[in-house]
Amino acid sequence: MKQEKLESKALELFQRQDFDIEKLEETKFKASNEETEIEIRVLSYEEFGDEEALEKIGEDEKLFIDEGLENIQEKIENDLSILEEDKEKDLEIPSYERIGDIVVISELDGISEEEAVEAVLEHNPGLDSILLKQENLSGEFRVGGYRNLYGEKTETVHREHGVRLKVDPTKMFFSEREGTERKRIFESVNDDDRVLVMFAGAGPFPVTIAKHSKASVVGVEKNPEAVKFARENIEMNSVGDKVEILQGDVREVCPTLGKFDHVLMPSPTNALDFTGEALECTEDGGRLVVYSVEEKDNLYRPVIKKVREEASEKGLDVEVLEKRVTADFSPSKRKVAVEFRVEE
Rank of each mutant, 00 (worst) to 15 (best):
P255E: 07
G219R: 01
D50T: 11
E235H: 13
I130E: 00
S216G: 04
V163R: 00
E97I: 09
K333F: 09
E26P: 02
D109E: 15
A337N: 04
S188D: 06
K23P: 03
I185D: 02
Q17T: 12
V293N: 02
I102M: 01
T208K: 07
V42G: 01
R41G: 14
S312V: 07
K222W: 05
N270Q: 10
K166P: 02
L54S: 05
A210F: 01
F48T: 00
E160Y: 11
E181S: 08
E107G: 07
H158G: 11
E225D: 15
N124Y: 11
N237E: 11
D101A: 11
R324Q: 10
E77C: 05
K153A: 14
S267C: 14
E232L: 15
P206Y: 09
N190Q: 14
K333G: 01
K242H: 12
L80A: 05
R98A: 09
V263W: 05
F329L: 06
T282E: 02
L279V: 07
L316P: 00
T170L: 13
Q17I: 08
I234Y: 03
K183C: 03
K2Q: 12
S106Q: 08
E310A: 15
V342S: 09
V307E: 05
E115F: 05
E178A: 09
A31Y: 01
D109L: 14
K89E: 15
D79T: 15
K28F: 09
E61S: 12
E61D: 10
K89P: 00
E118I: 06
F260I: 01
F29Q: 00
P224N: 08
R231H: 04
L246W: 07
R334A: 14
H212C: 04
I40A: 06
K56L: 13
A226N: 03
E160M: 08
Y150P: 00
Q247H: 10
H161F: 13
H212W: 11
E140F: 06
G139Y: 07
L257Y: 04
A116E: 03
S106G: 12
K87M: 10
D249K: 08
V325N: 07
F260C: 03
I304F: 11
D50C: 13
K87W: 13
D20K: 15
G49M: 06
K314V: 11
F205G: 05
P266H: 14
V250D: 01
E34N: 13
G151R: 06
E277F: 10
F229Y: 13
N148C: 05
L91V: 10
T27K: 08
E178G: 04
K153L: 12
D79I: 12
S188F: 05
F19V: 10
T282H: 04
P255D: 13
P169T: 06
S32A: 11
E12T: 11
E339P: 02
I57Y: 02
G258Q: 04
G162D: 06
I72D: 02
L131G: 03
T156E: 04
